[in-house]
C-alpha cells in the first residue's frame, strides 16, 4: 500500500501523542542539550528509515519547508 519513497501521509495513529512525547523529552533540557538530543534522534531515525533514497527525499522536504516564513519565537 505504501508508495515507494517518502510517505508524507500521516502514519501515526495519534499524532498528538507523538508530538507530546517529543516535547516531554526536551522538558528541562538546555538549548544545547536539546540540540544534541535531536541530533542523536535524527541518526537513530535515519537508521530506522534504512533507505538512503528516502532519507534524501526527507532532507529535501525539510529544506524546502524551512524556506516558508517562520514564526517569531514568542520569547
Amino acid at each position: 500500500m505504501t508508495p515507494p519513497g517518502l510517505d508524507t501521509a500521516c502514519r501515526l495513529a495519534d499524532p498528538d501523542a507523538a508530538y507530546r512525547l517529543l516535547v516531554e523529552a526536551h522538558r528541562g533540557l538546555s538549548d544545547e542539550d536539546s540540540a544534541r538530543l535531536n541530533t542523536r534522534l535524527v541518526l537513530i531515525l535515519a537508521n530506522q528509515v534504512g533507505d538512503p533514497g528516502v532519507l534524501r527525499e526527507a532532507l529535501a522536504l525539510a529544506r524546502q519547508a524551512g524556506s516558508a516564513p517562520s514564526v517569531h519565537p514568542s520569547r
Binding site: T8, C10, P15, A18, Y19, L61, Q64, A65
Partner: peptide, 8 residues
C-alpha cells in the same frame, strides 16, 4: 505541504 504536518 504534507498531510502528516497538518495532522500535527
Amino acid at each position: 505541504s504534507t498531510e502528516f504536518g497538518r495532522r500535527m
